[in-house]
């Protein structure tokens, strides 16, 4: 059994003060990852003395369109993503991804900040947010820093968060003209489903030619990263010359070159290729329809 003391933060300032002045504090937002780990006495959840409940911090619960980005407060829930007009307008793949998370209850409790900070290899928001080149904002009592999400992630269940920092928001830069997005996920059932594999694809198409492709599979590598070689293989190519099946296979090769052969590789090699193929086919179809 893990013993700890529980505190509830009335404001962000007080939360940061508490974090700044105590050792061994864990923040709890929706608790949908943390409480599971505490119950399991998972090594990840050990070695803390205080649980700091930040779930009441209304100032971190918002979705806001700004000049060149959409800011998502760290305490925004998955349901908010699903229902947000702004998100559905600019980043439909983020709403699609959020829709696949857990169940209604989990989507009502679980937060964007929790999903990112838990940094699970299978987290459903990480691939789309990485593909969207999101930045995260971290606050301490004395200041704030902003860094790209892919630099914030440090490994499976590991981030570069300092112990006195709270994540306040995620900034997702608006996509320019001609971008298309797609999200795919495989699970063992139709809900309450941790991804066996997921995938976010963001790319631009101009004059039938692909630009700025971003391909981010999840649960394929130790933690979600962009598949640079696969992206290269389609960048600058005319969509008529791209064989989605072949690109799918390339993505699988890239996965294996990163992870080596694992028990799950025989399955994931085929399944990832299918997802990549499917995402590209869907996007190309949409691009055609747009013409």
């Amino acid at each position: 059994m893990i013993d700890y003391e529980f505190f509830k933060a009335p404001s962000l300032k007080e939360a940061l003060e508490f974090l700044g002045s105590h050792e061994g504090v864990k923040a709890i937002a929706g608790g949908t990852d943390l409480l599971v780990d505490i119950r399991k006495e998972n090594a990840r959840a050990k070695g803390f003395k205080y649980l700091l409940d930040i779930s009441g911090l209304k100032e971190l619960k918002f979705i806001e369109e700004r000049k060149d980005c959409v800011a998502i407060g760290a305490l925004s829930t998955h349901t908010m993503l699903v229902e947000s007009l702004v998100i559905n307008k600019h980043f439909p793949l983020l709403a699609s991804a959020a829709k696949t998370i857990g169940s209604t209850q989990i989507r009502n409790r679980g937060t964007v900040g929790g999903n990112i900070n838990n940094a699970s290899p299978a987290a459903d928001l990480l691939p789309p947010l990485i593909a969207l080149k999101a930045h995260v904002k971290l606050r301490t009592l004395n200041g704030e820093r902003k860094l790209p999400l892919d630099e914030f992630l440090a490994g499976p269940y590991r981030t570069n968060r300092q112990s006195d920092e709270i994540m306040t928001e995620v900034c997702v830069p608006l996509l320019g003209e001609g971008y298309f997005t797609n999200f795919q996920k495989i699970g063992r059932r139709k809900a309450m489903n941790i991804a066996r594999l997921n995938l976010a694809v963001v790319l631009g198409i101009k004059d039938d030619t692909v630009f700025d492709p971003r391909i981010v599979p999840g649960a394929a590598t130790a933690y979600p990263i962009r598949f640079g070689k696969t992206e290269e293989a389609i960048s600058g190519k005319r969509i008529g010359d791209i064989d989605p099946a072949e690109i799918g296979e390339r993505a699988s090769e890239e996965m294996i070159s990163t992870t080596g052969i694992r028990w799950s590789t025989p399955y994931k090699r085929i399944a990832l290729a299918s997802l990549v193929k499917r995402a590209l086919e869907t996007i190309f179809r949409e691009a055609k329809a747009d013409e």
């Binding site: 495989i186 063992r188 028990w263 025989p266 399955y267 085929i270 399944a271």
Partner: peptide, 15 residues
């Protein structure tokens, strides 16, 4: 008949 069996025809052991 889970994901692995249906796709590969055989199970995968986590070990």
């Amino acid at each position: 008949l889970n994901l692995e069996r249906v796709l590969l025809g055989h199970p995968l052991r986590k070990g």
